[in-house]
Each structure stands twice: as structure tokens, then as C-alpha cells.
Amino acid sequence: MATRGVTYGNTHRPSLTCPNLHVHRPRRNADDTDNARPPRYHGRPSLGRAPIAGCKIHRPGENDAVALIGAGVPLHECLAAAEQLAEVGIAARVIDLYSVKPLERAMLIETCRATEGRLVVVQDHYPQGGISGEVMEALADAELDELHVTLLGVNGLPMSGQPAEPLDAAGIFARHIVAAARKLTEVREWTPTIRPTNPPGNHA
């Protein structure tokens, strides 16, 4: 997909490659086999190529009840959450929204129609701005019958720890996504709902 001007995307994923960007280090010599191994993120496999200006849809189905949207680190939590939801009979598609400019608006609208407007947007920073803001802006004037959105973001001071610990403390771990998705799937009657799970606060 050709684009003009500046594009913005989340490159914090070990598998992102495109014609103008490659995040893996170059091979040092003919015996260097490190790059031959599939890249992994905290023990999880690579997600393949991600061209500039686009998105990826994982686990799409005809009976999807909810969509989980993330990019970078939260994407992997969304994928783990989708697997857990499948175990209890809830079909969830996962949107890798790695490109926010340009944004795949048509895909978001189609996703809303497929899931009766149920979205969980996950970002690894404060609730203000980020992909959640881009998603809501893209859907602001869309002709949708229903829209139920839960925003999961960081609402506290950063902490150090093992990879899973900061995510869990921030409320953006897979289990938090599962809980948000299960709550959304309980929605039956149309009520426009936008719930910041972590209400914005003042951050110095």
C-alpha cells in the first residue's frame, strides 16, 4: 500500500518487517545462525510481516462476539486473551492495529458490524491519546447501530519487574482483557457505552 507523507506505527514487535524497515540485526558472517531462528517475544512466536500502512486481523470468524484491539506488547496479551475466551465459548477476533496513520477505518467499521460494536482497546500507556483515541475518532461519525467500547490503559506509575508483572500491575494483562471482553458480551440491549476501565487522572 503506497502512502504519502509521514506515517505512524508501533514497531515494538519482533516480527515487524517491511521494505524500508527491518528490526532484526544484520547477519555478522556466514556462520551467524541467530537470525535463522524464528523471533520470539517472551516465549511467543513471531507474527510475520507487517507492511507500513495496514493492520492484521487474527482469528476472524463469522460468529465473533467481541474484538480485541492492540499493538506492540498488548497485542500478545490480546492473542492470549482470545485463546482463553475461546475456552469458554466466546469467539474473539484480534486486531493488530500497528499503523495509526494511516488507519484502516473501513476495517474498524466492518469489525464493529461483525461484533455488534463490542471492542476492547488495549494500550500500554496512559488512557489519554494513543490508539484508543484514534479508534474513537475513526468511529465518531460511522453509521453503526451499536457501539460498546472498553479502554484498557495504564493508570499508575511505572514499575520494574519480570515481563508479566508490570502488565498485570497496570491492568492490561490477558486476564484483564478477558474480564473486559466477558463483561461486554453480556450487553444485550443497545446502550452506547464507552468505559475507561482505568479512569484518567493527573500524572506529574
Rank of each mutant, 00 (worst) to 15 (best):
T3H: 13
R4A: 14
R4S: 13
V6C: 01
Y8G: 05
N10F: 07
N10K: 00
T11K: 04
T11P: 07
H12A: 14
V23A: 07
H24Q: 15
P26I: 12
T33F: 10
D34Y: 12
N35W: 03
P38D: 05
P38Q: 09
Y41C: 12
H42L: 12
H42C: 14
S46P: 02
S46D: 15
G48W: 09
R49E: 15
A50W: 10
P51D: 15
K56G: 15
R59M: 10
G61E: 04
E62I: 13
N63D: 14
D64T: 15
A67Y: 01
L68W: 04
V73M: 06
V73S: 09
V73P: 03
P74I: 01
E77F: 01
C78Y: 05
A80R: 12
A81R: 02
Q84W: 00
Q84V: 00
V88Q: 13
V88T: 15
G89R: 03
I90H: 06
A91G: 01
A91D: 11
I95Q: 01
D96W: 02
L97Q: 02
L97S: 05
V100D: 02
K101A: 05
P102D: 03
P102G: 02
R105P: 02
A106K: 04
I109E: 14
A114E: 03
G117D: 01
L119N: 03
V120T: 00
V121H: 04
V122Q: 00
Q128H: 06
G130K: 05
G130F: 06
G130Q: 02
I131M: 12
S132L: 00
V135K: 05
A138F: 04
E143P: 00
L144T: 00
L144N: 01
V149M: 07
V149E: 06
T150W: 01
L151P: 00
L152P: 08
N155M: 08
N155I: 08
G156M: 13
M159L: 14
Q162Y: 12
P163H: 12
A164S: 14
A164K: 08
A164Y: 13
A164C: 04
E165R: 13
D168L: 13
G171H: 08
I172W: 09
A174H: 10
A174V: 01
H176D: 15
H176I: 08
I177K: 05
V178Y: 11
A180L: 07
K183T: 15
V187H: 14
W190K: 14
T191A: 13
T193Q: 11
T193E: 09
I194H: 11
R195D: 15
P196T: 03
P196E: 08
P196Q: 07
N198H: 12
P199C: 09
P199M: 09
P200A: 11
